[in-house]
Design a binder for these strands. Structure first.
Length: 907
DNA sequence: CTGAATGAAAA
DNA sequence: TTTTCATTCAG
């Protein structure tokens, strides 16, 4: 009943055309759960208003966030029709396609995907089909009453179309919607505990995550409190609806295997949760909740919590002891402890670091101090990386939950594509530092993003003043930055500091404004449209800002109750007030508004850290750490300059994806790795679905190329590879392959090749992998012709316009075949080339250029992860330098895309 | 908001 | 058979 009415209402009430989309949100279990809360009717209005309201009200920090999440949920309620096999395929491979053809727009990508799909073996296709079916079944279960589309009733437009043409009249009956939740939940299993689970992963922004975490902690003392471990363990089973939850699970899961004790400590999130819980308890029921919500508050809590945690952690850490990494970790831990403990400790820390980095200058110490200040937060963050490392090695899949973290980070770095994900991390929403890593939600999908963005803008305005402070950092010391990077690399932090300005800004703003958030502004893109709401949001933002701060301050005071380390306090306070207490050792950078900076850095660091951590893990696992370091050193020398800041900025921005990474080339970031995409997407889906989705085979472009060749459609020339050495020639399509290969190499799990199955295992990654025989190609060319024949006909007929690297558009159709062949051929030869790990480092620039060139075929695949890692490391260093010079290639556009390709092969 | 693809479902 | 709509995102 309601449903129908509600829908109508929506349409009428809304007026804004946008809603329809929300309604359509894709279905996933989580959503289903969430449905409970809202009735459809309310959803629409609520969403917008609620959010605003929440923000405005923000009476409680908690509620705010919660509200947001809820809103999202509510909005999302509307189930979206499940994706069909092809869509699943697209979703999974689009990123790949885009990587290969960065210039190509989605339509073009879609065409290519269609080709791939056509080329796909029936078997493979069947997998997708089956998956689609599963989805559908699940969906239907969740939404019993769901009707696909009313279909043609669609006079939808009649109503002046304006409103919502799309809106789905069909939306499932209200009943179903309500009902949905129950069924889904059942599916989900045990979500019960986690209320926070309710939040939509998709929509959840970083903040929401944090909030959720906080709530969770509050709501489910079990998990967060004490040791959430037990709970967590159980939770692992859970569907992991909420990102946070997942996060917790992950951490728990990962940690367990290794060492139970560590678990808690290990994951930053986990700690976070704990912290929040603890804090909440401390504060008191009411306050607690609030605190949980506000990022600042949370931070404060974290700091506090960290103290307790750290104790354990330290122990654990000690136990672990191990190679370099361990040492590093210890350092971190120590640092953390230090911070917590006292200034004295800080000093020690400094010493520590000195020892570690003797090379470094005193400046480092300053940095350290800063870090210390931030330390509380940092400490938490620091932990994450460790866990991640361990975990990652063992289980990539698990990570899938948090795409951002491990995967994105690792993949990104390696690939250098700089996936979107990171963007997320940096995302303004991510106000919460913590959130960043977790940020599962894909902003884009939901309108929220837009809203948020708007919000951000406002926030930015306010925040702007702060920004100024940030900049200073950059000035700080180039050398220092370099040094830092190196250290970071060693630690796995990667450029946290360097990230410097950009990231920091974001973070800072976020922290400060909480609601306001970032200046960073991701918004650029999407912001455009929704200004309407902006006004509301603005107001809300303002209110928010003030509140959160207050809350934080209050909470902090309570929590701290004196115990809190100065540093922490300072941090907490700083956001609120610019004043800083930099009581700590002489604050390394008094100038910068320490407070802001710190905060920012913290936030940025965290996200970055997570990335770095992932990278680090990867490296470690690979055993590449040593080499990496060496590279880093090299890079250090070479670059030696302080420009790192730019590069840093890039990083952080990368995460944004869209945001302006401004200074540095943005495009790079844009590329998303296949994985990342999948991951992101996964965020939406619940674990199971996600898993399934991820489990879906992802085919490397190469395989398709082959197929293409083989494929009848295209002409299949079997010509096989006559081995064309042409290194330089650029085929429009060539690029793809290597990247893909590269990726595959990195992530063996995903690298499933259709027939060839060139599964590249990690071990293989090194050189041989390529061996792929050209092969067999199964091929499936039979065109099922499923859809409308017309389309197909069209397809066959139409040649896709593919943009070449040059940017020219070339017909992909028949011509492609040739290209494909060439590509293949090229690949083979290159395979031989293989290693050049050492060289790679130096040649970073050259590499990049190459990468840009389509030619680089599979070579990358051959390179070892180590090489990649090195490259990544180098990248950081070099970036600063290269920023300008690179362009010489003439293909600037590509550059961004494949900045890091490690085409070591020397030609 | 449109489009480009495919496919499921409804009309 | 035709129409909707699901995903994705530049334009």
């Amino acid at each position: 009943m309601k449903g129908s009415g509600g829908d109508k209402d929506h349409a009428a009430a809304e007026g804004a055309g946008k809603r329809p989309r929300r309604q359509c949100l894709q279905w996933h279990p989580l959503l289903a759960k969430k449905l409970l809360d809202f009735s459809e009717e309310e959803e629409d209005d609520d969403e917008e208003e609620d959010i605003d309201r929440v923000q405005l009200l923000g009476a409680d920090g908690l509620e705010q966030d919660v509200g947001d999440t809820e809103d999202d949920e509510s909005s999302e309620q509307r189930a979206r029709r499940p994706m069909n096999a092809f869509l699943l395929f697209c979703k999974r491979h689009r990123s790949l396609v885009r990587q290969e053809h960065p210039r190509l727009d989605n339509r073009g990508a879609t065409k290519i995907l269609a080709d791939w799909w056509a080329a796909l073996d029936p078997k493979e296709k069947q997998k997708y089909t089956d998956m689609a079916k599963e989805y559908k079944d699940a969906f239907m279960k969740a939404n019993p009453g769901y009707k696909w589309c009313p279909t043609t009733n669609k006079p939808v437009k009649s109503p002046t179309s304006t409103v919502n043409p799309r809106k789905k009249l069909w939306a499932f009956p209200s009943d179903s919607s309500r009902d949905l939740p129950s069924p889904k939940k059942a599916k989900t299993h045990e979500m019960p505990q986690l209320n926070f689970g309710m939040a939509d992963p998709t929509q959840m922004g970083g903040l929401s995550m944090l909030l959720l975490a906080g709530e969770r902690a509050l709501g489910t003392p079990e998990m967060s409190s004490g040791t959430c471990r037990p709970d967590v363990s159980e939770s692992t089973e859970l569907p992991q609806k909420s990102p946070l939850f997942q996060f917790a699970e992950i951490s728990s899961s990962t940690s367990r295997p290794d060492a139970p004790t560590k678990q808690c400590q290990a994951s930053a999130l986990f700690q976070f949760a704990e912290i929040s819980s603890n804090t909440s308890q401390l504060v008191g029921a009411e306050p607690v909740k609030r605190c949980g919500k506000s990022a600042l508050f949370q931070l404060a809590e974290m700091c506090l919590a960290s103290e307790g945690v750290r104790m354990e952690e330290t122990k654990l850490i000690k136990e672990q002891d191990g190679g370099k990494i361990k040492d590093l970790e210890e350092k971190e831990e120590r640092e953390i402890k230090m911070e917590e403990a006292d200034e004295a400790e800080l000093q020690e820390e400094a010493e520590f670091e000195k020892a570690m980095k003797e090379n470094r200058r005193e400046s480092k110490e300053l940095r350290n101090f800063e870090e210390l200040q931030m330390g509380n937060v940092m400490a938490i963050k620091m932990e994450e990386p460790k866990e991640i490392r361990k975990e990652e090695l063992e289980e990539d899949q698990k990570y899938s939950h948090f795409p951002d973290f491990s995967y994105s980070a690792s993949s990104k770095i390696i690939i250098s594509d700089v996936p979107n994900r990171k963007d997320h991390v940096c995302h303004p929403h991510g106000i919460m530092i913590i959130e960043d890593p977790a940020v599962l939600s894909k902003p884009e999908k939901i309108k929220k993003k837009k809203k948020k963005n708007k919000m951000d803008r406002h926030g930015n305005d306010k925040s702007t003043p702060k920004k100024t402070c940030k900049k200073r950092q950059s000035s700080e010391s180039d050398i220092e930055s370099v040094m830092y990077t190196i250290e970071a690399v060693a630690k796995g932090d990667w450029g946290a500091d360097k990230l410097g300005e950009a990231p920091r800004r974001k973070v800072r703003t976020s922290s400060s404004g909480k609601g306001g958030i970032l200046d960073a502004k991701p918004p650029k893109k999407k912001v455009k449209s929704r200004e309407k709401k902006m006004s509301k949001e603005k107001t809300s933002d303002i209110t928010k800002e003030s509140r959160p701060l207050d809350l934080l301050s209050v909470c902090a005071s309570k929590n701290v109750s004196g115990e809190v380390p100065e540093g922490i306090k300072a941090e907490t306070l700083t956001p609120l007030e610019d004043t800083l207490p930099p009581s700590l050792s002489g604050p390394a950078k008094p100038e910068d508004s320490d407070c802001h900076r710190k905060i920012e850095t913290c936030g940025s660091r965290k996200s970055e850290r997570s990335c770095k951590g992932a990278l680090y893990k990867t490296l470690v696992s690979e055993g590449m750490l040593a080499s990496l370091r060496a590279n880093v050193d090299r890079g250090k020398r070479s670059s030696g300059k302080g420009n790192s800041s730019d590069h840093e900025g890039c990083w952080s921005e990368e995460s944004w994806t869209f945001h302006q990474c401004g200074t540095s080339g943005n495009k790079k970031f844009k590329r998303t790795k296949p994985r990342e995409d999948s991951l992101l997407g996964s965020a939406k889906l619940d674990e199971e679905s996600e898993r399934k989705f991820n489990s879906l085979p992802q085919y490397s472009p190469i395989s398709f190329d082959r197929k293409w060749v083989s494929i009848p459609r295209k002409k299949k020339k079997t010509g096989n590879m006559s081995s064309e050495p042409t290194k330089t020639s650029k085929g429009s399509g060539d690029k793809w392959s290597h990247k893909q290969l590269f990726l595959d190499a990195i992530h063996p799990t995903e690298a499933i090749f259709s027939e060839d199955k060139i599964t590249i295992e990690p071990a293989h990654k090194v050189k041989n992998a390529l061996s792929i025989p050209n092969t067999p190609e199964p091929i499936a060319v039979q065109e099922p012709l499923v859809g409308s024949q017309k389309r197909k006909a069209r397809k066959t007929k139409i040649t896709h316009l593919v943009r070449t690297a040059d940017g020219r558009v070339s017909p992909a159709g028949g011509t492609l075949d040739d290209k494909a062949k060439e590509q293949l051929q090229r690949r083979l030869p290159k395979a031989a080339e293989t290693d050049c790990t050492e060289d790679c480092t130096q040649d970073a620039e050259a590499q990049e250029t190459r990468s840009s060139t389509p030619e680089m075929p599979a070579v990358s695949a051959f390179f070892s992860l180590a090489a990649l890692a090195e490259v990544a490391a180098m990248e950081n260093v070099h970036r600063g330098q290269r920023s300008t010079p690179l362009t010489h290639d003439g293909q600037p556009k590509e550059m961004p895309q494949a900045p890091v390709l490690i085409s070591c092969a020397d030609q």
